[in-house]
Design a protein around this nucleic acid. Structure first.
Lengths: 230, 230
DNA sequence: GTTACAATGAACCACTCGGTTAATTACGTC
DNA sequence: GACGTAATTAACCGAGTGGTTCATTGTAAC
Protein backbone atom coordinates (compact mmCIF):
# COMPACT_ATOMS: atom_id res chain seq x y z
CA UNK A 1 0.00 0.00 0.00
CA UNK A 2 2.54 2.59 1.09
CA UNK A 3 5.15 1.20 -1.27
CA UNK A 4 3.00 1.88 -4.30
CA UNK A 5 3.36 5.53 -3.59
CA UNK A 6 6.97 5.87 -4.61
CA UNK A 7 6.61 4.86 -8.24
CA UNK A 8 4.01 7.50 -8.99
CA UNK A 9 4.82 10.08 -11.68
CA UNK A 10 6.79 12.22 -9.30
CA UNK A 11 9.60 14.17 -10.83
CA UNK A 12 10.56 16.08 -7.73
CA UNK A 13 12.12 14.76 -4.55
CA UNK A 14 12.39 11.04 -4.36
CA UNK A 15 15.14 10.98 -1.82
CA UNK A 16 14.22 12.44 1.56
CA UNK A 17 10.97 10.65 2.14
CA UNK A 18 11.23 8.55 5.22
CA UNK A 19 14.38 9.25 7.13
CA UNK A 20 12.87 9.63 10.57
CA UNK A 21 12.27 13.38 10.51
CA UNK A 22 9.49 14.84 12.62
CA UNK A 23 7.20 15.38 9.66
CA UNK A 24 8.08 14.53 6.11
CA UNK A 25 7.51 17.59 3.92
CA UNK A 26 6.89 15.49 0.87
CA UNK A 27 3.91 16.86 -1.03
CA UNK A 28 3.89 14.41 -3.91
CA UNK A 29 3.87 11.43 -1.63
CA UNK A 30 1.17 12.95 0.51
CA UNK A 31 -0.95 13.74 -2.50
CA UNK A 32 -0.54 10.22 -3.82
CA UNK A 33 -1.36 8.84 -0.42
CA UNK A 34 -4.55 10.87 -0.25
CA UNK A 35 -5.47 9.88 -3.76
CA UNK A 36 -5.13 6.20 -3.00
CA UNK A 37 -7.08 6.44 0.21
CA UNK A 38 -9.76 8.44 -1.52
CA UNK A 39 -9.99 5.93 -4.31
CA UNK A 40 -10.60 3.12 -1.86
CA UNK A 41 -13.17 5.10 0.07
CA UNK A 42 -15.05 6.38 -2.98
CA UNK A 43 -15.02 2.96 -4.57
CA UNK A 44 -16.37 1.48 -1.37
CA UNK A 45 -19.11 3.98 -0.63
CA UNK A 46 -19.75 6.20 -3.61
CA UNK A 47 -19.46 9.94 -3.82
CA UNK A 48 -22.01 10.93 -1.22
CA UNK A 49 -21.46 7.79 0.82
CA UNK A 50 -17.74 8.42 1.17
CA UNK A 51 -16.68 10.23 4.31
CA UNK A 52 -13.80 12.64 4.35
CA UNK A 53 -13.02 11.46 7.85
CA UNK A 54 -12.86 7.90 6.59
CA UNK A 55 -10.43 8.96 3.90
CA UNK A 56 -8.33 10.65 6.55
CA UNK A 57 -8.24 7.44 8.53
CA UNK A 58 -6.93 5.57 5.50
CA UNK A 59 -4.19 8.16 5.28
CA UNK A 60 -1.07 9.26 7.07
CA UNK A 61 -2.22 12.85 6.82
CA UNK A 62 -4.87 15.12 8.21
CA UNK A 63 -8.19 16.34 6.89
CA UNK A 64 -6.74 19.75 6.35
CA UNK A 65 -4.29 18.36 3.81
CA UNK A 66 -7.05 16.91 1.69
CA UNK A 67 -8.66 20.26 1.21
CA UNK A 68 -5.29 21.95 0.95
CA UNK A 69 -4.36 19.85 -2.04
CA UNK A 70 -7.68 19.00 -3.63
CA UNK A 71 -10.02 21.84 -2.77
CA UNK A 72 -13.21 19.98 -2.04
CA UNK A 73 -14.75 16.55 -1.97
CA UNK A 74 -15.98 16.60 -5.52
CA UNK A 75 -12.66 17.70 -6.94
CA UNK A 76 -10.99 14.93 -5.03
CA UNK A 77 -13.45 12.47 -6.49
CA UNK A 78 -12.72 13.85 -9.90
CA UNK A 79 -8.98 13.43 -9.38
CA UNK A 80 -9.56 9.84 -8.31
CA UNK A 81 -11.67 9.14 -11.36
CA UNK A 82 -9.17 10.76 -13.64
CA UNK A 83 -6.28 8.77 -12.25
CA UNK A 84 -8.24 5.52 -12.44
CA UNK A 85 -9.09 6.00 -16.08
CA UNK A 86 -5.56 7.01 -16.85
CA UNK A 87 -4.22 3.80 -15.39
CA UNK A 88 -6.64 1.72 -17.39
CA UNK A 89 -5.69 3.36 -20.63
CA UNK A 90 -2.08 2.81 -19.80
CA UNK A 91 -2.69 -0.88 -19.23
CA UNK A 92 -4.62 -1.13 -22.48
CA UNK A 93 -1.84 0.49 -24.42
CA UNK A 94 0.61 -2.11 -23.20
CA UNK A 95 -1.31 -4.88 -24.88
CA UNK A 96 0.63 -5.72 -27.98
CA UNK A 97 -1.31 -7.85 -30.41
CA UNK A 98 -0.22 -6.59 -33.79
CA UNK A 99 1.81 -9.71 -34.49
CA UNK A 100 -1.11 -12.06 -33.88
CA UNK A 101 -3.58 -13.29 -36.49
CA UNK A 102 -6.89 -11.45 -36.16
CA UNK A 103 -8.88 -14.18 -34.46
CA UNK A 104 -6.20 -14.74 -31.87
CA UNK A 105 -5.78 -11.02 -31.41
CA UNK A 106 -9.48 -10.72 -30.73
CA UNK A 107 -9.28 -13.51 -28.20
CA UNK A 108 -6.42 -11.73 -26.48
CA UNK A 109 -8.41 -8.52 -26.23
CA UNK A 110 -11.37 -10.30 -24.74
CA UNK A 111 -9.26 -12.19 -22.26
CA UNK A 112 -7.38 -9.08 -21.33
CA UNK A 113 -10.53 -7.06 -20.73
CA UNK A 114 -12.21 -9.81 -18.79
CA UNK A 115 -9.20 -10.35 -16.57
CA UNK A 116 -8.45 -6.71 -16.16
CA UNK A 117 -11.93 -5.88 -14.96
CA UNK A 118 -11.90 -8.85 -12.66
CA UNK A 119 -8.71 -7.75 -11.04
CA UNK A 120 -9.61 -4.10 -10.74
CA UNK A 121 -12.91 -4.06 -8.91
CA UNK A 122 -12.25 -0.59 -7.58
CA UNK A 123 -12.11 0.79 -11.07
CA UNK A 124 -15.35 -0.97 -11.91
CA UNK A 125 -16.98 0.45 -8.84
CA UNK A 126 -15.86 3.94 -9.69
CA UNK A 127 -17.39 3.59 -13.12
CA UNK A 128 -20.59 2.26 -11.59
CA UNK A 129 -20.71 5.24 -9.28
CA UNK A 130 -20.02 7.61 -12.11
CA UNK A 131 -22.91 6.08 -14.02
CA UNK A 132 -25.18 6.61 -11.06
CA UNK A 133 -24.24 10.24 -11.43
CA UNK A 134 -24.97 10.09 -15.16
CA UNK A 135 -21.34 10.75 -15.94
CA UNK A 136 -21.64 14.32 -14.82
CA UNK A 137 -18.21 14.50 -13.31
CA UNK A 138 -16.54 12.49 -16.00
CA UNK A 139 -17.49 15.06 -18.55
CA UNK A 140 -15.09 17.40 -16.84
CA UNK A 141 -12.16 15.14 -17.55
CA UNK A 142 -10.55 16.37 -20.73
CA UNK A 143 -8.30 13.61 -21.93
CA UNK A 144 -11.14 11.14 -22.22
CA UNK A 145 -12.72 11.28 -25.62
CA UNK A 146 -9.40 11.49 -27.39
CA UNK A 147 -7.58 8.66 -25.68
CA UNK A 148 -10.42 6.26 -25.13
CA UNK A 149 -10.97 5.87 -28.80
CA UNK A 150 -7.75 3.88 -28.71
CA UNK A 151 -9.71 0.88 -27.53
CA UNK A 152 -11.92 1.13 -30.56
CA UNK A 153 -9.01 1.71 -32.87
CA UNK A 154 -7.39 -1.42 -31.65
CA UNK A 155 -10.51 -3.42 -32.41
CA UNK A 156 -10.91 -1.63 -35.67
CA UNK A 157 -7.50 -2.76 -36.82
CA UNK A 158 -8.25 -6.31 -35.81
CA UNK A 159 -11.54 -6.22 -37.67
CA UNK A 160 -9.98 -4.86 -40.84
CA UNK A 161 -7.33 -7.53 -40.76
CA UNK A 162 -9.97 -10.17 -40.07
CA UNK A 163 -12.08 -9.07 -43.00
CA UNK A 164 -9.06 -8.85 -45.23
CA UNK A 165 -8.07 -12.39 -44.31
CA UNK A 166 -11.57 -13.58 -45.13
CA UNK A 167 -12.11 -14.66 -41.55
CA UNK A 168 -14.56 -12.04 -40.33
CA UNK A 169 -17.91 -10.98 -41.67
CA UNK A 170 -17.73 -7.77 -43.60
CA UNK A 171 -20.33 -5.97 -41.54
CA UNK A 172 -18.64 -6.32 -38.17
CA UNK A 173 -18.68 -3.19 -36.07
CA UNK A 174 -15.73 -2.60 -33.76
CA UNK A 175 -17.93 -0.45 -31.58
CA UNK A 176 -20.50 -3.20 -31.13
CA UNK A 177 -17.78 -5.74 -30.46
CA UNK A 178 -16.37 -3.47 -27.82
CA UNK A 179 -19.82 -2.99 -26.34
CA UNK A 180 -20.27 -6.74 -26.05
CA UNK A 181 -16.87 -7.39 -24.56
CA UNK A 182 -17.30 -4.59 -22.07
CA UNK A 183 -20.81 -5.60 -21.14
CA UNK A 184 -19.92 -9.10 -20.07
CA UNK A 185 -16.57 -8.26 -18.54
CA UNK A 186 -18.05 -5.38 -16.63
CA UNK A 187 -21.22 -7.05 -15.46
CA UNK A 188 -19.19 -9.97 -14.22
CA UNK A 189 -17.68 -7.70 -11.60
CA UNK A 190 -20.25 -4.99 -11.11
CA UNK A 191 -23.19 -7.27 -10.44
CA UNK A 192 -21.46 -10.01 -8.60
CA UNK A 193 -23.21 -9.21 -5.32
CA UNK A 194 -26.80 -9.23 -6.54
CA UNK A 195 -26.22 -11.99 -9.04
CA UNK A 196 -24.78 -14.41 -6.56
CA UNK A 197 -27.41 -13.42 -4.05
CA UNK A 198 -30.07 -14.40 -6.54
CA UNK A 199 -28.49 -17.40 -8.17
CA UNK A 200 -25.67 -18.53 -5.94
CA UNK A 201 -21.98 -17.78 -6.30
CA UNK A 202 -20.96 -20.84 -8.28
CA UNK A 203 -20.10 -18.72 -11.29
CA UNK A 204 -17.56 -16.75 -9.32
CA UNK A 205 -15.32 -19.61 -8.36
CA UNK A 206 -11.98 -19.53 -10.11
CA UNK A 207 -12.65 -22.36 -12.55
CA UNK A 208 -16.11 -21.10 -13.38
CA UNK A 209 -14.64 -17.70 -14.13
CA UNK A 210 -12.24 -19.23 -16.59
CA UNK A 211 -15.15 -21.02 -18.17
CA UNK A 212 -17.14 -17.80 -18.38
CA UNK A 213 -14.22 -16.02 -19.95
CA UNK A 214 -13.97 -18.70 -22.59
CA UNK A 215 -17.70 -18.39 -23.11
CA UNK A 216 -17.29 -14.69 -23.78
CA UNK A 217 -14.48 -15.40 -26.21
CA UNK A 218 -16.68 -17.86 -28.05
CA UNK A 219 -19.63 -15.50 -28.08
CA UNK A 220 -17.67 -12.65 -29.53
CA UNK A 221 -15.91 -14.93 -31.89
CA UNK A 222 -19.08 -16.39 -33.32
CA UNK A 223 -20.42 -12.89 -33.75
CA UNK A 224 -17.63 -11.82 -36.01
CA UNK A 225 -16.74 -15.01 -37.85
CA UNK A 226 -18.12 -15.67 -41.29
CA UNK A 227 -20.63 -18.48 -41.31
CA UNK A 228 -19.89 -19.64 -44.85
CA UNK A 229 -16.43 -20.97 -44.24
CA UNK A 230 -14.15 -22.46 -41.54
CA UNK B 1 -48.11 7.94 -11.57
CA UNK B 2 -50.89 8.60 -9.08
CA UNK B 3 -53.21 6.21 -10.87
CA UNK B 4 -50.85 3.33 -10.33
CA UNK B 5 -51.47 3.67 -6.66
CA UNK B 6 -55.01 2.41 -6.64
CA UNK B 7 -54.31 -1.07 -7.95
CA UNK B 8 -51.85 -1.88 -5.23
CA UNK B 9 -52.55 -4.88 -3.03
CA UNK B 10 -54.91 -2.97 -0.82
CA UNK B 11 -57.65 -4.95 0.77
CA UNK B 12 -59.01 -2.19 2.94
CA UNK B 13 -60.75 0.98 1.89
CA UNK B 14 -60.89 1.61 -1.82
CA UNK B 15 -63.84 3.90 -1.76
CA UNK B 16 -63.29 7.15 0.14
CA UNK B 17 -60.03 8.24 -1.36
CA UNK B 18 -60.49 11.57 -2.96
CA UNK B 19 -63.84 13.07 -2.18
CA UNK B 20 -62.74 16.54 -1.12
CA UNK B 21 -62.36 15.87 2.59
CA UNK B 22 -59.97 18.00 4.58
CA UNK B 23 -57.32 15.31 4.73
CA UNK B 24 -57.66 11.92 3.20
CA UNK B 25 -57.00 9.33 5.90
CA UNK B 26 -55.94 6.74 3.39
CA UNK B 27 -52.85 4.95 4.67
CA UNK B 28 -52.38 2.55 1.77
CA UNK B 29 -52.41 5.31 -0.77
CA UNK B 30 -50.06 7.40 1.30
CA UNK B 31 -47.70 4.49 1.75
CA UNK B 32 -47.73 3.74 -1.96
CA UNK B 33 -47.18 7.41 -2.69
CA UNK B 34 -44.16 7.51 -0.41
CA UNK B 35 -42.82 4.31 -1.87
CA UNK B 36 -42.97 5.66 -5.39
CA UNK B 37 -41.38 8.92 -4.46
CA UNK B 38 -38.68 7.12 -2.54
CA UNK B 39 -37.99 4.83 -5.45
CA UNK B 40 -37.42 7.76 -7.75
CA UNK B 41 -35.18 9.52 -5.27
CA UNK B 42 -33.13 6.48 -4.35
CA UNK B 43 -32.76 5.50 -7.98
CA UNK B 44 -31.61 9.00 -8.78
CA UNK B 45 -29.14 9.52 -5.97
CA UNK B 46 -28.40 6.25 -4.23
CA UNK B 47 -28.94 5.38 -0.61
CA UNK B 48 -26.73 7.97 1.02
CA UNK B 49 -27.24 10.48 -1.76
CA UNK B 50 -31.01 10.42 -1.43
CA UNK B 51 -32.49 13.10 0.78
CA UNK B 52 -35.53 12.50 2.90
CA UNK B 53 -36.55 16.07 2.27
CA UNK B 54 -36.34 15.43 -1.47
CA UNK B 55 -38.57 12.41 -1.08
CA UNK B 56 -41.04 14.54 0.83
CA UNK B 57 -41.09 17.02 -2.00
CA UNK B 58 -41.96 14.27 -4.47
CA UNK B 59 -44.85 13.37 -2.20
CA UNK B 60 -48.21 14.67 -1.11
CA UNK B 61 -47.32 13.89 2.48
CA UNK B 62 -44.98 15.09 5.16
CA UNK B 63 -41.67 13.88 6.45
CA UNK B 64 -43.40 12.69 9.56
CA UNK B 65 -45.40 10.15 7.58
CA UNK B 66 -42.32 8.59 6.07
CA UNK B 67 -40.91 7.70 9.44
CA UNK B 68 -44.34 6.84 10.74
CA UNK B 69 -44.81 4.17 8.11
CA UNK B 70 -41.28 3.06 7.32
CA UNK B 71 -39.27 3.63 10.45
CA UNK B 72 -36.04 4.93 9.02
CA UNK B 73 -34.26 5.69 5.80
CA UNK B 74 -32.71 2.30 5.36
CA UNK B 75 -35.95 0.44 5.92
CA UNK B 76 -37.58 2.66 3.37
CA UNK B 77 -34.83 1.86 0.92
CA UNK B 78 -35.33 -1.80 1.65
CA UNK B 79 -39.05 -1.51 1.00
CA UNK B 80 -38.33 0.20 -2.30
CA UNK B 81 -35.91 -2.49 -3.32
CA UNK B 82 -38.30 -5.21 -2.33
CA UNK B 83 -41.14 -3.73 -4.30
CA UNK B 84 -38.97 -3.20 -7.34
CA UNK B 85 -37.82 -6.80 -7.40
CA UNK B 86 -41.34 -8.00 -6.84
CA UNK B 87 -42.58 -6.11 -9.86
CA UNK B 88 -39.85 -7.51 -12.04
CA UNK B 89 -40.64 -11.06 -11.04
CA UNK B 90 -44.26 -10.40 -11.74
CA UNK B 91 -43.46 -9.16 -15.21
CA UNK B 92 -41.24 -12.16 -15.85
CA UNK B 93 -43.94 -14.54 -14.80
CA UNK B 94 -46.32 -13.07 -17.33
CA UNK B 95 -44.08 -14.09 -20.20
CA UNK B 96 -45.71 -17.12 -21.70
CA UNK B 97 -43.44 -19.01 -24.01
CA UNK B 98 -44.34 -22.61 -23.40
CA UNK B 99 -46.03 -22.93 -26.74
CA UNK B 100 -43.03 -21.73 -28.73
CA UNK B 101 -40.26 -23.91 -30.15
CA UNK B 102 -37.12 -23.64 -28.00
CA UNK B 103 -35.11 -21.38 -30.25
CA UNK B 104 -37.94 -18.93 -30.59
CA UNK B 105 -38.66 -19.13 -26.90
CA UNK B 106 -35.06 -18.24 -26.19
CA UNK B 107 -35.28 -15.30 -28.55
CA UNK B 108 -38.39 -14.12 -26.75
CA UNK B 109 -36.66 -14.28 -23.38
CA UNK B 110 -33.70 -12.31 -24.65
CA UNK B 111 -35.88 -9.70 -26.28
CA UNK B 112 -38.04 -9.44 -23.22
CA UNK B 113 -35.11 -8.97 -20.87
CA UNK B 114 -33.41 -6.49 -23.12
CA UNK B 115 -36.54 -4.41 -23.54
CA UNK B 116 -37.59 -4.68 -19.96
CA UNK B 117 -34.28 -3.41 -18.65
CA UNK B 118 -34.29 -0.64 -21.20
CA UNK B 119 -37.70 0.54 -20.12
CA UNK B 120 -37.08 0.27 -16.40
CA UNK B 121 -33.96 2.29 -15.80
CA UNK B 122 -34.97 2.97 -12.22
CA UNK B 123 -34.90 -0.71 -11.45
CA UNK B 124 -31.48 -1.00 -13.03
CA UNK B 125 -30.23 1.89 -10.98
CA UNK B 126 -31.53 0.36 -7.79
CA UNK B 127 -29.67 -2.83 -8.59
CA UNK B 128 -26.53 -0.85 -9.37
CA UNK B 129 -26.83 0.90 -6.05
CA UNK B 130 -27.43 -2.32 -4.25
CA UNK B 131 -24.30 -3.74 -5.82
CA UNK B 132 -22.34 -0.75 -4.61
CA UNK B 133 -23.51 -1.81 -1.18
CA UNK B 134 -22.44 -5.39 -1.88
CA UNK B 135 -26.03 -6.53 -1.67
CA UNK B 136 -26.07 -6.01 2.05
CA UNK B 137 -29.62 -4.80 2.20
CA UNK B 138 -30.91 -7.22 -0.37
CA UNK B 139 -29.91 -10.11 1.81
CA UNK B 140 -32.61 -9.02 4.21
CA UNK B 141 -35.32 -9.55 1.62
CA UNK B 142 -36.73 -13.00 2.17
CA UNK B 143 -38.68 -13.86 -0.94
CA UNK B 144 -35.64 -13.50 -3.17
CA UNK B 145 -33.80 -16.75 -3.44
CA UNK B 146 -36.95 -18.76 -3.81
CA UNK B 147 -38.71 -16.75 -6.46
CA UNK B 148 -35.78 -15.56 -8.48
CA UNK B 149 -34.89 -19.07 -9.44
CA UNK B 150 -37.97 -18.87 -11.64
CA UNK B 151 -35.91 -17.06 -14.24
CA UNK B 152 -33.47 -19.93 -14.30
CA UNK B 153 -36.24 -22.51 -14.33
CA UNK B 154 -37.71 -20.89 -17.37
CA UNK B 155 -34.41 -21.08 -19.19
CA UNK B 156 -33.87 -24.56 -17.93
CA UNK B 157 -37.09 -25.73 -19.51
CA UNK B 158 -36.17 -24.08 -22.78
CA UNK B 159 -32.76 -25.70 -22.72
CA UNK B 160 -34.14 -29.14 -22.03
CA UNK B 161 -36.58 -28.82 -24.86
CA UNK B 162 -33.84 -27.50 -27.12
CA UNK B 163 -31.58 -30.41 -26.34
CA UNK B 164 -34.43 -32.86 -26.73
CA UNK B 165 -35.23 -31.43 -30.13
CA UNK B 166 -31.61 -31.79 -31.14
CA UNK B 167 -31.29 -28.05 -31.60
CA UNK B 168 -29.14 -27.11 -28.64
CA UNK B 169 -25.78 -28.37 -27.54
CA UNK B 170 -26.01 -30.83 -24.71
CA UNK B 171 -23.71 -28.92 -22.38
CA UNK B 172 -25.64 -25.66 -22.33
CA UNK B 173 -25.99 -24.11 -18.89
CA UNK B 174 -29.17 -22.16 -18.17
CA UNK B 175 -27.30 -20.22 -15.52
CA UNK B 176 -24.60 -19.14 -17.93
CA UNK B 177 -27.18 -18.24 -20.55
CA UNK B 178 -28.96 -16.13 -18.01
CA UNK B 179 -25.69 -14.53 -17.02
CA UNK B 180 -25.00 -13.57 -20.60
CA UNK B 181 -28.46 -12.23 -21.29
CA UNK B 182 -28.44 -10.22 -18.09
CA UNK B 183 -24.96 -8.90 -18.65
CA UNK B 184 -25.68 -7.32 -21.99
CA UNK B 185 -29.20 -6.19 -21.20
CA UNK B 186 -28.09 -4.69 -17.91
CA UNK B 187 -24.92 -3.05 -19.13
CA UNK B 188 -26.85 -1.47 -21.95
CA UNK B 189 -28.72 0.60 -19.41
CA UNK B 190 -26.40 0.81 -16.46
CA UNK B 191 -23.36 2.06 -18.34
CA UNK B 192 -25.04 4.22 -20.89
CA UNK B 193 -23.63 7.41 -19.41
CA UNK B 194 -19.97 6.48 -19.35
CA UNK B 195 -20.13 4.45 -22.51
CA UNK B 196 -21.60 7.20 -24.61
CA UNK B 197 -19.28 9.68 -23.00
CA UNK B 198 -16.35 7.58 -24.15
CA UNK B 199 -17.58 6.37 -27.49
CA UNK B 200 -20.49 8.56 -28.50
CA UNK B 201 -24.16 7.84 -28.12
CA UNK B 202 -24.80 6.32 -31.52
CA UNK B 203 -25.55 2.94 -30.00
CA UNK B 204 -28.38 4.37 -27.96
CA UNK B 205 -30.49 5.65 -30.80
CA UNK B 206 -33.67 3.67 -31.28
CA UNK B 207 -32.61 1.81 -34.40
CA UNK B 208 -29.18 1.03 -33.01
CA UNK B 209 -30.82 -0.40 -29.92
CA UNK B 210 -32.90 -2.73 -32.03
CA UNK B 211 -29.76 -3.79 -33.80
CA UNK B 212 -27.98 -4.39 -30.51
CA UNK B 213 -30.87 -6.43 -29.25
CA UNK B 214 -30.72 -8.59 -32.33
CA UNK B 215 -26.99 -8.89 -31.81
CA UNK B 216 -27.59 -10.21 -28.32
CA UNK B 217 -30.14 -12.67 -29.64
CA UNK B 218 -27.62 -13.91 -32.17
CA UNK B 219 -24.84 -14.14 -29.62
CA UNK B 220 -26.88 -16.16 -27.21
CA UNK B 221 -28.27 -18.23 -29.99
CA UNK B 222 -24.91 -19.17 -31.39
CA UNK B 223 -23.78 -20.09 -27.90
CA UNK B 224 -26.46 -22.69 -27.46
CA UNK B 225 -26.97 -24.02 -30.96
CA UNK B 226 -25.27 -27.18 -32.05
CA UNK B 227 -22.62 -26.54 -34.63
CA UNK B 228 -23.02 -29.84 -36.44
CA UNK B 229 -26.46 -29.24 -37.87
CA UNK B 230 -28.93 -26.44 -38.77
C1' DG C 1 -71.32 11.95 22.22
C1' DT C 2 -67.65 9.77 24.31
C1' DT C 3 -63.85 6.80 24.01
C1' DA C 4 -59.89 4.83 21.74
C1' DC C 5 -56.85 4.84 18.40
C1' DA C 6 -54.84 5.59 13.84
C1' DA C 7 -53.22 9.35 10.89
C1' DT C 8 -51.33 13.80 10.43
C1' DG C 9 -48.92 18.44 10.95
C1' DA C 10 -45.50 21.78 12.89
C1' DA C 11 -41.85 22.60 15.24
C1' DC C 12 -37.85 20.98 17.06
C1' DC C 13 -33.26 18.57 18.00
C1' DA C 14 -28.84 16.27 18.25
C1' DC C 15 -25.31 15.45 15.56
C1' DT C 16 -22.72 14.49 11.48
C1' DC C 17 -20.04 16.28 7.91
C1' DG C 18 -17.81 19.14 4.55
C1' DG C 19 -15.12 22.87 4.89
C1' DT C 20 -12.40 26.85 7.30
C1' DT C 21 -9.38 29.76 10.43
C1' DA C 22 -5.40 30.77 12.43
C1' DA C 23 -1.38 29.59 14.29
C1' DT C 24 2.99 26.55 13.76
C1' DT C 25 6.77 24.08 11.70
C1' DA C 26 10.02 22.73 8.12
C1' DC C 27 12.93 24.30 4.44
C1' DG C 28 15.25 26.58 0.60
C1' DT C 29 17.72 31.03 -0.16
C1' DC C 30 20.42 35.05 0.33
C1' DG D 1 20.53 33.19 10.69
C1' DA D 2 16.80 35.91 9.09
C1' DC D 3 13.18 35.76 5.75
C1' DG D 4 9.56 34.07 2.86
C1' DT D 5 6.92 30.46 1.63
C1' DA D 6 5.17 25.84 1.44
C1' DA D 7 3.49 22.15 4.41
C1' DT D 8 1.11 20.84 8.47
C1' DT D 9 -1.70 20.81 12.80
C1' DA D 10 -5.48 21.52 16.01
C1' DA D 11 -9.49 23.55 16.92
C1' DC D 12 -13.56 25.32 15.25
C1' DC D 13 -18.08 26.24 12.54
C1' DG D 14 -22.44 26.48 10.30
C1' DA D 15 -25.54 24.17 7.29
C1' DG D 16 -27.96 20.24 6.42
C1' DT D 17 -29.76 15.81 7.79
C1' DG D 18 -32.07 11.92 9.73
C1' DG D 19 -35.08 11.40 13.15
C1' DT D 20 -38.33 12.84 17.22
C1' DT D 21 -41.84 15.17 20.31
C1' DC D 22 -46.13 16.60 21.12
C1' DA D 23 -50.24 18.20 20.17
C1' DT D 24 -54.23 17.73 16.85
C1' DT D 25 -57.58 15.75 13.77
C1' DG D 26 -60.26 12.21 11.62
C1' DT D 27 -62.84 7.84 12.22
C1' DA D 28 -64.81 3.77 13.78
C1' DA D 29 -67.24 1.46 17.76
C1' DC D 30 -70.31 1.53 21.49
Amino acid sequence: MANEIKNKPTQARAQGRSQGRSWKQDPETVKADILNAARAEFAAHGLSGARISAIVERTQTSKRMIFYYFGDKESLYLAVLDQAYREVREAEANLDIRHLPPDEALRKVVEFTFDHHRHNPDFIRLVMIENIHDGNHMSRIQTLATTNIAAIDQLDRICRRGIEAGLFREDVSPLVIHWQISAMSFFNVSNRATFSMNFGDDLFAEDAQLMLREQVVQSISSSVMRTDRV
